[in-house]
Design a protein around this nucleic acid. Structure first.
Lengths: 201, 201
DNA sequence: ACCTGAACACCGTTCAAGT
DNA sequence: ACCTGAACACCGTTCAAGT
């Protein structure tokens, strides 16, 4: 029963994306299967390959949405002193990660077997998240070169991310949410204290 | 051609483990398949399930070996001032991660769909790695409670780990090995500076 | 042009049957 | 008791065939 142009390819693409996103959110990262998506949108598997090259391509587009959601969340952080803002950004990041666990995981699940390149439009979204933190570093040390600021941002944020990752990979019970939040604050405060004390680098 | 007790079950287990480890090291995380292991050791797939419950079980045992290797590497770090030692431990950790990329990845690849518990013998190996870092924190602040030291260790080490993860996930080209090492040193130095300055917590 | 659905290659896992 | 190997259920992906 070929349903000719009941939906445009654009519409189909959006439907696939929505359905896949729902599956990940509701059933987790390992439940995403082409056949399940097909059933959800009322098409057959073949149709999905009309709008996405393969599963990896689809997942990359879902991850892009997640990165947008993270950026949107971070943008809502109240503006105050730079130090305080950076701390709030870090806690907000963790809060997003724990509340949107399955989506967040997918982004950092290991990826692309060596050969595959990260597309520019995707890298932009990653940079966009970092940029929100970097702005505050700029307020704090406007005299520093962009390079040094970028490095400090990347360093601290990777650290914050690492705490989120290990707290979530290891043992959810042993390290409760409150503990993780405290660890993040501890990392940010100590790093910032050290960073400011030694004003350059 | 059933080969009766040509090897003991213990020997078989070791053979499977060795073969699987080699595949991961040489061909990467996605190349590990039961059939490939079976061919490598000259048995059929069924035999593997005589000594391991399933793939996840097998992988967990490989990861245990990797954790042992990491601990062994960290133990070789020269003894000097606590601050210097912690920095060296962090750089050594990254060095192991980048030189044993595939094995290291497997350990932190996402895991166990919710239900599965982490066995005690495995958790011990994880704790063992942390303990090596914690010792130096103890030298640095012997007056602190074990709890506060553990938290500081876990925080900093998660941060170091995060830098390794993102540097390896994101873009190997853009952030070269030298850059990553500098980021790790930056994180450790600033964190330690901040931590010491504010002697408690 | 759009869509189907059967087919393909490839997984992990099981288990009756052999020695 | 140890081991085989065929079978099962389930993947992602392709493509000739239909409308």
């Amino acid at each position: 029963m070929a349903r000719r142009s009941e939906h445009s390819l654009e519409e189909l693409k959006a439907m696939v994306l929505d359905a896949a996103e729902s599956i990940i959110i509701e059933e987790g990262f390992s439940a995403l299967k082409v056949r399940k998506i097909a059933v959800a949108i009322g098409y057959t598997v073949g149709s999905i390959y009309m709008v996405f090259a393969n599963m990896a391509d689809l997942v990359m587009h879902i991850n892009a949405r997640t990165l947008d959601a993270i950026a949107a969340q971070l943008e809502q952080v109240q503006d105050c002193s730079a130090e305080q803002s950076i701390e709030s950004l870090a806690v907000t990041y963790f809060s997003y990660a724990s509340q949107n666990f399955n989506r967040w995981c997918k982004v950092f699940e290991y990826r692309l077997p060596a050969d595959a390149e990260i597309p520019d439009w995707y890298q932009e979204k990653v940079d966009n998240v970092f940029a929100l933190v970097e702005e505050r570093f700029a307020e704090l040390a406007p005299e520093l070169s962009e390079d040094l600021r970028k490095r400090a941002t990347r360093t601290l944020w990777s650290g914050v991310h690492g705490i989120c990752v290990l707290s979530v990979t290891g043992k959810q019970d042993k390290a409760g949410i409150k503990d993780v939040e405290e660890m993040i604050v501890l990392l940010v405060r100590n790093f910032m204290r050290g960073w400011i004390a030694c004003s350059n680098k």
